[in-house]
Structures are given as C-alpha cells and as structure tokens.
Design a protein around this nucleic acid. Structure first.
Length: 281
DNA sequence: CAGTCATGCGCAG
DNA sequence: TGCGCCTGACTGC
C-alpha cells in the first residue's frame, strides 16, 4: 500500500473528512496518548503529504507526523450514529462528524513543531506528486542521479534523491523505460531522466485517483491481451513487480528477481537489457 | 492454523 | 547487516 500515492490520497481524504472542524484525537493503544490529549477537540487545519511523510496540521504550528512504513495503515471509516470501537492496536484515532480514522502499525506517529516539519522536508528529494515550483522539481533529483555511480534502482528508492517512489513504482518505471536496474545514474542522460520523471508524475497521479498502482499501457491490459487479470493482494496491473518466473507481457522472456539493499528487484532481462556500465549497488 | 512475506525505514551494533 | 514495528493476505500442512 504505502508508496507516495497512498499518502497523497490520504492527505486529500483526511482534509475532506476532517478539516475546518473540531476533531476528537485519541490513542486507544496508549502510545500516542500524551500528544493526543494536547490536540483533542482542536480544529484540524488540513493534511499534506511529502513523499511518504504525512502531516496533519493543528493550530499553534503543531503537526502530527505519520510515516506508515511497510505495514502501517490509516483506515478511514464513515459512521452514522456512533463511531465503531477500535479493533487491534490503534495508535491514533481521529473522530470527526461522520468519519473515524484509525492508525495501526505505523513506523512513526509523532507530534512535531513547524521547525521539525521544515527540517524533515529539507532532507527529502523532490516529490513527483507536488507541483514543480512547490517541491516537484525533477532537476533537483537529476543533480544527484546524473553524477552518481550508484545504480538507478538504488537511487530511485533513496528518499533524499526523490521522495515517494517505492518498490512497485521503481520496478515499473524502469521497465516502462527499458532501463536495466543496475545501470549507473551517471550513465543515464538528462533527457532520459526527464522522460522518466514525466511518466512517474502521470503514473503516480493515476495512483492517487485510483488508490492503486496500474502501470500497463492500454495494449497490455488483460482485456487487450486476453489474459487473466492480476489476483493477489497488490491488485494493480503491472509489468514486472512480483512477477518472478512469469513471462514478460511484452517480449515473453522470464521475469527475473534479485535482492538489492534488502529489497526485491524485478525486471525483464530482455526488455531491460544490461548496459556496459553496471553498478554493483 | 502456524509460518512467511510485504508497496519502508530508523536504529543498534 | 539485522531487527523492530506488530498488520494482514496468502500459503502449505
């Protein structure tokens, strides 16, 4: 679930459901209790995402900073009469007029000052889901990528290079641009990078709108190819992500996987032919 | 029904 | 480099 599109979608949905009115803030699990008490009953000003970081803004320049990590979820549930009782380890619960939001399993849920938010954002690279003049400048990422000997696969997942891309968008972006995951950053051209960025902007906006990651072009959809749709918990239609051992939708070669920096990498060895300058990490 | 693994990342060692 | 976070879908017995 949580790549950048998930957090931006949550920011939008939270603003819709809670902003501009008093919100009950609690921590049924207890771990965020002291902080929740300080915010309980205050008006939520709004929610914003930057990469995979989510910020809920309260009066007095106080922000709830949330990072879902790998297994975290922020679940919004509409209710009519009474909010349903919390289930499991709910670290943060927001209750609005007709919506309840429950946070479980997150890596981070802290109360931050404006200075902490600014410092946190300053560490992040540009976010494809932000406007070019407000944090979405692809040249800031290129300044790092274009002179790096590290692999493009490693660079794409480095949130200080660009913010919001996770393992699915990484694999799919590299496939769509026929780039070997191990190609060195400095072996890409500026033009190639800008084309990848533009594609990422479109893919991730589509992800926000649909709340899932679909990356196959129209000619490679299940309907167009007369094949079965994807059925696992990921759900989206993709070219290579978690398709190890299956035939590439484009060329039929067997999709490969390898571990890189503790994460699985997926690619088609034929469509994404290895370049001469391959990085080792 | 126990075990595995996952769209992430900070920190201990 | 490996663990913690501590959810939840899927797998194999």
């Amino acid at each position: 679930m949580p790549e950048g599109h998930t957090l931006h979608r949550l920011a939008h949905d939270l603003t819709d459901a809670f902003a501009g009115r008093p919100v009950r803030v609690g921590s049924p699990q207890g771990r965020f209790d002291a902080e929740a008490r300080q915010l309980d009953g205050q008006v939520l000003d709004g929610a914003q995402a930057w990469g995979k970081q989510l910020f809920l803004e309260f009066p007095g320049e106080r922000y709830i900073h949330i990072h879902l990590g790998l297994i975290g979820k922020l679940q919004l549930t509409p209710y009519d009469d009474q909010p349903p009782p919390p289930i499991g380890q709910v670290r943060l619960r927001l209750v609005g007029e007709s919506t309840v939001a429950d946070l479980r399993g997150a890596t981070a849920c802290d109360l931050w000052t404006r200075e902490q938010v600014d410092a946190g954002i300053a560490k992040l690279g540009p976010d494809p889901l932000r406007p070019p003049d407000a944090g979405g400048d692809p040249l800031k990422a290129w300044a790092r990528i274009g002179r790096s000997q590290r692999s493009i696969a490693s660079l794409l997942m480095d949130q200080t290079v660009l913010a919001g891309v996770g393992n699915v968008y990484r694999a799919e972006l590299l496939f769509r641009h026929r780039v070997d995951p191990y190609r060195r950053g400095d072996a890409l051209t500026r033009k190639q990078w800008l084309a990848m960025w533009d594609d990422l902007v479109a893919l991730m906006h589509d992800g926000v709108a649909k709340n899932r990651i679909d990356t196959v072009r129209v000619e490679h959809t299940p309907e167009a190819m007369d094949r079965d749709p994807r059925v696992d918990d990921h759900g989206g239609e993709v070219y290579v992500y978690r398709r190890t051992g299956q035939p590439c939708h484009v060329c039929g070669a067997v999709v490969r996987t390898a571990e890189l920096e503790g994460r699985n990498l997926f690619w088609c060895p034929r469509c994404q032919r290895a370049s001469r300058s391959r990085a080792t990490k």
